[in-house]
């Protein structure tokens, strides 16, 4: 086994003018629950599709579960559970038929576990998928991928549009599975607070580029909004990453990443006075991170 469940190097993909995935280098550690954040159109779904061979990258390399993609794709997919952004199951099948169909393709498919999950999710065996509610389809998709007993779960907005009760059921089943098997989870979502609760790593995607990739604790604790007096106008080498800065009356507000308390000394060294250090929650940090990345691109 390798250290990373997913590792890409300088991945390139340009489906047409106006959008491209550029120099994408992802590193998802084995056993991690990796939250893949980004605004609409950032390239999250495209990245997932590239990882799973649904689209062909035009450059770069990928290793998934220690295997080279897309060359060893069938072997990778046999150990990967995928929940796409839009449900992809054949809608004319019933729940039981969909389970039998899906399970036939996976050697490790756990039929007893699938049945347990079906009962737990209260999915009627004979109901046609076309007649299931959105929440029930979401549960069925999670059931199918968990019963595969995968080493890697790739979930593209798995709880999008689900009500809070269903969302909780789905995430509970997911976390139970991860606790049992130490599987790696790569989950993209718009719901920042949801990821904050379950993820231990985070990657932020914007306009086809990976803007940040760091442990969740570093993201949550390391992003600060600092109000300064006498802030330097030119910033040279800093022990942190300056995400953004803006004037607020006489003061200046900096948003920094990689903050640690001893860095106070750096400000004293440049003659600035720290008036206030504010913790940002994940959503605020995410927004500031995107804002900083976009203004840097604009420059």
């Amino acid at each position: 086994m390798t250290e990373f469940a997913i590792q890409t190097q300088d991945l390139q993909y340009r489906p047409g003018p106006g959008f491209e995935i550029r120099d994408l280098s992802l590193r998802v550690r084995e056993g991690a629950i990796y939250g893949f954040l980004g605004p609409n159109g950032a390239g999250k779904t495209t990245t997932i599709q590239l990882l799973l061979g649904l689209r062909r990258a035009q450059g770069g390399s990928m290793r998934i579960l220690g295997r080279e993609a897309p060359r060893e794709l069938p072997r990778i997919l046999s150990a990967t559970g995928y929940v796409p952004e839009r449900p992809h199951l054949y809608t004319y099948l019933t729940v039981a038929q969909a389970i039998r169909y899906h399970g036939a393709f996976y050697e490790r498919f756990d039929w007893a576990y699938a049945e347990d999950l079906r009962r737990g999710f209260q999915l009627p065996q004979g109901a046609s998928i076309s007649r299931l509610s959105k929440g029930e389809v979401g549960k069925l998709l999670i059931l199918l991928v968990l019963a595969q007993r995968p080493d890697l779960l790739v979930l593209d907005e798995p709880t999008d549009g689900l009500d809070p009760v269903v969302r909780r059921d789905v995430l509970t089943a997911l976390l139970d599975f991860c606790a049992q098997r130490a599987a790696t989870v790569f989950i993209s979502s718009h719901l920042v607070h949801e990821l904050e609760r379950i993820c231990d790593w985070i990657g932020v995607m914007d306009r086809g580029r990976l803007t940040a990739e760091l442990p969740m604790h570093a993201f949550k604790n390391g992003i600060k909004r600092i109000r300064l007096a006498h802030a330097p106008s030119l910033v040279g080498d800093t022990p942190f990453t300056l995400v953004s800065r803006e004037s607020s009356g006489l003061d200046v507000v900096w948003v920094v990443r990689g903050w640690q308390p001893p860095m106070v000394q750096w400000f004293q060294g440049v003659g600035a006075e720290i008036l206030e250090v504010v913790d940002l929650d994940l959503e605020e940090g995410f927004v500031e991170l995107l804002r900083g990345a976009r203004s840097a691109q604009a420059i």
Binding site: L52, G53, L54, L73, P74, R75, I76, L77, S78, T80, Y82, P84, R86, H88, L89, Y90, F105, Y106
Partner: peptide, 13 residues
């Protein structure tokens, strides 16, 4: 109709 997503995500060549 499903843009071949299901078929392509199955572990068979």
């Amino acid at each position: 109709a499903g843009r071949h997503v299901y078929a392509l995500s199955l572990p068979v060549p």
